Amino acid sequence: MTIGAGAGTLLEVSGISVSFDGFKAINNLSFNIGPAELRAVIGPNGAGKTTFMDIVTGKTRPDEGTVRWGENYTNLLKRNEAQIARAGIGRKFQRPTVFEDQSVTDNLMMALKAARSPWKVLFWRAGAKDDARVAEIAAQVGLADQLPRKAGELSHGQKQWLEIGMLLAQEPKLLLVDEPAAGMTLAEREATTALLVDLARTRAVVVVEHDMEFVRRLNCRVTVLHEGSVLAEGSLDHVTADKRVIEVYLGR
């Protein structure tokens, strides 16, 4: 019988440490998230938030520790970035990366999960099922009426939603989202909050964010990182009342 990463655990990061030129970016970090959970990660600059995501997605290899994934307790440290993405981990960076000269439809169509061998890509043609899936994703991210437009014509917030839609096309089990509210209008921020909350009903979503009001709207468990370790964890009210958090983060 295969042992999972723990009851109700999708991702288990345990005792991770990594140094760059003598600087310990991550220091004995442990972090768990469930299969349908929304989590916010906050902390001052240099706290290790980006490095944490780099390790989970295979971009950075830790000096020690383990990263386990899914029901089969898969060791992600033995996988490369592409294999980790195919396993169901999607990452959205702060600056949206979309094909600006292509339509919203084409961006989503290119992102659909499918066999990607050179031979199959050469002869692949979109079918009715693909068209329906693209329409479904566009509606989910609030772009149903934008499908014919070029991605470059979208607002900043709409580009963010398109990139989230492109990740959804890969059918991820975990989404890592970096500062989604940055540069958005108030209406876009509210729509993004609703989108992330909705997505977390069927998958895990980890949001790295500095905007405390945005985090409050997410109404989820919060993990505070400092010097590469977990400083505090709990509701936003709980962590913001912690004297250590006030001293190293909120008081600055």
Rank of each mutant, 00 (worst) to 15 (best):
A139I: 06
E153R: 11
E233A: 02
G4P: 12
E12K: 14
I26W: 05
G4E: 13
W119P: 03
F123A: 09
V18Q: 01
L176V: 02
R203M: 12
L174W: 10
A85D: 12
K120R: 13
F31Q: 04
L168Y: 09
D101W: 10
V206C: 02
S229F: 07
T105W: 15
L231I: 02
K159Y: 08
G70T: 09
E136H: 13
E163D: 10
K129W: 11
D130M: 13
N219Y: 03
A204C: 04
V245Q: 02
V67E: 05
Q102F: 15
F214K: 00
F123D: 05
T202A: 06
V224L: 00
V230P: 03
I42L: 04
V141H: 02
D130G: 15
E12R: 15
L147C: 10
A200R: 00
A200Q: 00
T9S: 08
A204M: 01
L76G: 05
G15E: 12
I84L: 04
S229N: 08
G165Y: 12
T51F: 07
A36C: 10
L186I: 14
A182R: 00
N75D: 14
A111L: 12
L162S: 10
P172V: 02
L10T: 03
V248F: 07
G22W: 15
A182S: 09
K78C: 11
I3L: 14
S17T: 08
E179C: 00
T57V: 03
A181L: 01
M109R: 11
N219I: 06
N27K: 13
G165R: 10
T202Y: 06
A132P: 09
I89S: 03
L10E: 05
R95E: 14
H238S: 09
V245S: 07
S14L: 10
E64D: 10
N80G: 09
L38R: 01
